[in-house]
Simulated assay, not measured.
Amino acid sequence: MGVAIRTAVEGDRELIVRLLDEAFQDDPVSGWVFPEVADRRAKHPALMAAFTDIVLAAGRIDVTEDGSACALWFSVPADEGQGDGDTGDDDGPAPVREAVDPDNERIETIGRLTAAVHPTGRAHEYLWMIGVAPGRQGEGLGTALIEAVLDRCDREELPAYLEASNARSRKLYERLGFELAGSVLDLPDGPAMWPMWREPRPHRPA
């Protein structure tokens, strides 16, 4: 049986924030941004809320009908990249840091570092984040969310891009056709992230 997927709307905001918070609490990158567990428990939801608001305004969020998984996407036009560290006119990493935790420089640092390695020059779909409820991981929900967009990418001859934040997700993305794009991004005194690019595959009509 296939996974039913729909586009999230504003009324799904709290669901998306909760999903992302639960899914990324123990992620290596979230642990780097908020090294102290108590601090992470307190402030991580606000960071996920800021991300959710940015994508609801300027991108698209796909969510499974049962609310157990979501994927945050941006459609990046040709010749437009994230090289200045911003994901929107007023939604770059500095305002996010100010809104979430002004004393935490790492919130801004990670936004600028990932922006600096983001490919430019070709239109593509950018998978910013994907979250699956901890109790539902391993069921193929994340794969279904990604494949739904990759199928469209293949039809429209669009590449796709993402940054893998852990080794497990990197393996999933490799199975879906993504390859390392450039050098591994090593966060200062922190974990690695893997920029990954996928060229569209020849589309075979059903």
Rank of each mutant, 00 (worst) to 15 (best):
S183C: 08
D90K: 12
R40C: 11
A123K: 07
N104W: 08
V117P: 03
A58G: 06
Q137C: 01
G182E: 10
T120V: 14
E179G: 10
A4P: 04
G83M: 07
G182V: 01
L150C: 07
A133P: 04
I130N: 10
A99N: 05
A69N: 08
I16P: 13
A42F: 05
M193T: 07
L187F: 09
C70F: 07
V184T: 14
D53P: 09
A133K: 14
F24P: 10
R40E: 03
G121Y: 03
A8T: 05
L150I: 04
D154P: 00
T7I: 13
E156I: 02
R170I: 07
G81I: 05
A49L: 09
A78K: 02
P205V: 15
L19K: 08
R168I: 08
G135Y: 07
L185M: 11
D103P: 11
L180N: 00
A123Q: 10
L127I: 03
N166S: 09
A49R: 15
D62C: 01
G81F: 00
E147Y: 09
R13I: 03
T52C: 15
P28M: 07
W128Q: 13
D90S: 12
I54T: 13
G2K: 15
P77M: 03
E10I: 10
L172I: 09
R204H: 12
W194Y: 15
D189M: 02
A57R: 12
